[in-house]
Design a protein around this nucleic acid. Structure first.
Lengths: 142, 142
DNA sequence: TCTTTATGACTACAATTGTAAACTAAAGAT
DNA sequence: ATCTTTAGTTTACAATTGTAGTCATAAAGA
């Protein structure tokens, strides 16, 4: 799993990836079973998404008898890290801290997540500046 | 500012919003000056994005002499909160904690951000479960 | 071996997005 | 009262995305 960071995965494709990541590998049928309720998708929709994901290099497809077995070529955690960084990269730096705080308030966290988060924050605390500057405007070239 | 949460703002549009949010209000010219370097955009590109944002209800446009003054109709912090929630909503619940930890490691945080984050985490710690279940597969309807 | 069926491949098509050219109308200058 | 400049409007156009129909083919059963 080389984990190419440059791959763009759309929302719909993301749903397919989640199933495959969780199962480790999967057939189109299995994916269909897992998503038809939640997404109200027809089989051809899944086929299209699988095709695009293979083409993008996010999945491998190995023929196993009649069907293909799809396996992830990119790793889940690093893909999640990548897209969240992309998102926050194009937001006002000054407000990222509060946004993450608001976010933490909404998500489910386990005890070990808490430990991990506390550690990260303790580390950051050591060198945190008083204020983070807004980076939304071009620097004045006076 | 009513802050309609349903508005979808694309990446390019986001850049325009950031400038307007930071300035409070702006003309197309001012936006151009702030983004031409960073985005390498031509003026018509900005015009298009402004038009789309007004149409979407993200901006108001008041004629002031020759030009329009654009003002945000949605609030920056809540828009940031909204899009980050949207992003994490379609990710594996089980891995969100570690993703946010990885993210915190990368971003700039001020001392007051740190205080705020510690508070949120302390709150969450009270009721945090041992483990957060993966929510990527359909529940078996046995 | 022939037929049925499951599965993937190809095609489709509208909406959104990124990017910008061309056109038009109004404001300021002469 | 014109002309020029400037700012907005309309049009354009390819790529991506969401969603799915149709076609072809290979496997499985009769």
């Amino acid at each position: 799993m080389t984990t190419k960071q440059s791959i763009e995965i759309s929302d719909a494709e993301w749903e397919v990836m989640r199933v495959i990541w969780t199962l480790g590998q999967s057939t189109s049928n299995e994916i269909f079973e897992n998503l038809k309720e939640k997404m109200k998708w027809q089989m051809p929709t899944i086929k299209t998404l699988l095709g695009r994901l293979v083409k993008k290099g996010a999945l491998s497809a190995d023929k196993e008898g009649r069907a293909f077995i799809y396996k992830p070529l990119i790793e889940e955690q690093s893909t999640m890290d990548h897209v969240s960084q992309l998102l926050f990269d194009h937001m006002c730096q000054m407000k990222i801290g509060s946004t993450i705080a608001d976010l933490l308030d909404e998500v489910a966290l386990s005890q070990s997540d808490i430990v991990r988060l506390r550690n990260v924050i303790d580390q950051k605390a050591k060198n945190a500046p008083e204020k983070v500057e807004c980076n939304c405007l071009a620097k004045k070239t006076v």
